[in-house]
Each structure stands twice: as C-alpha cells, then as structure tokens.
Design a protein around this nucleic acid. Structure first.
Length: 115
DNA sequence: GGGCTGACCTACT
DNA sequence: CAGTAGGCCAGCC
C-alpha cells in the first residue's frame, strides 16, 4: 500500500501519539517509525498541526531528536508545551529534556506491527 | 506542471 | 559543539 493515503497516515500518527504514556516524550522520528513510516518525520509535524482539537492528542509529548521543543524558545506555544511537560514531571536541563530518562521506547512488537 | 515550505532527521565536515 | 547537505512528501502558490 502506498502511504500517500494521507488519511491513513494521519490516523496512524495520531494513534501513535495517543499511545505515548504520561510523563514520557517521543521524537518525531520515533513517532514516524513506531507508526510504520520511517523517514517521514516531517509529515508527523504536519499531521499534528492538522489534527483536530477534539481528539485531545498529547501533542506536547512530541519533541525533536535533540531533546528540545520544536517551537521557538519564548513563543507562546513553547511556553505552553513546556508547562504541560513540567506538570507531568518531565524536567528540563536548560532548554533540553533528558532523553535517556524520558524518551518513550515503544515495544519491538509495536514497531514491527507494520504490515 | 514546477518551486517553495514545513512543530524534522541523519550523517558528515 | 556548530554548520551544511541531502532526504522525505503533502500542500499551497
């Protein structure tokens, strides 16, 4: 199947994000990989931006691979995301999150769940 | 149809 | 550690 079906893509990305447990974070690349679309990190950002509010996705648990928030430091969105993460017990070292400690690594079964 | 953009990633210099 | 280069692909001029 060609993953140009954006409806399918979005659905799986949203589902994957929804699976991130409380107090953990995941990078864009990891989300894409876990959803079965390795290499499509950029699409993840687009999918999230287009996700309806009604889904109540924990979008704040998605950060970039360097352990930082993707938004510009000091922006409203940055402050909001950071506040949400800190309220879940995630600690910041300057602007960075300790990946070793807070990165959520889905089970291999789920990674291999792709067809 | 072509070109640019984007809540990005990895690898290399 | 910082900067660059190439890659990915839907969506909007």
């Amino acid at each position: 199947m060609k993953y140009s079906e954006s409806a399918e893509f979005n659905e799986r990305i949203w589902k994957t994000i929804a699976e991130i447990p409380y107090g953990r974070v995941m990078s864009y690349g990891k989300v894409a990989q876990a959803a079965g679309f390795p290499g499509l990190a950029r699409r993840v950002g687009q999918a999230m931006h287009r996700a309806p509010e009604s889904l109540g996705l924990p979008w704040h648990r998605v950060i970039n691979s360097s352990g930082k928030i993707a938004f510009a430091i000091g922006s409203d969105q940055y402050n909001l995301q950071r506040a949400k993460l800190e309220s879940e017990g995630i600690e910041f070292n300057k602007e960075c999150i300790d990946m070793q400690q807070f990165m959520y690594q889905p089970s291999l079964d789920e990674i291999l769940w792709k067809p």
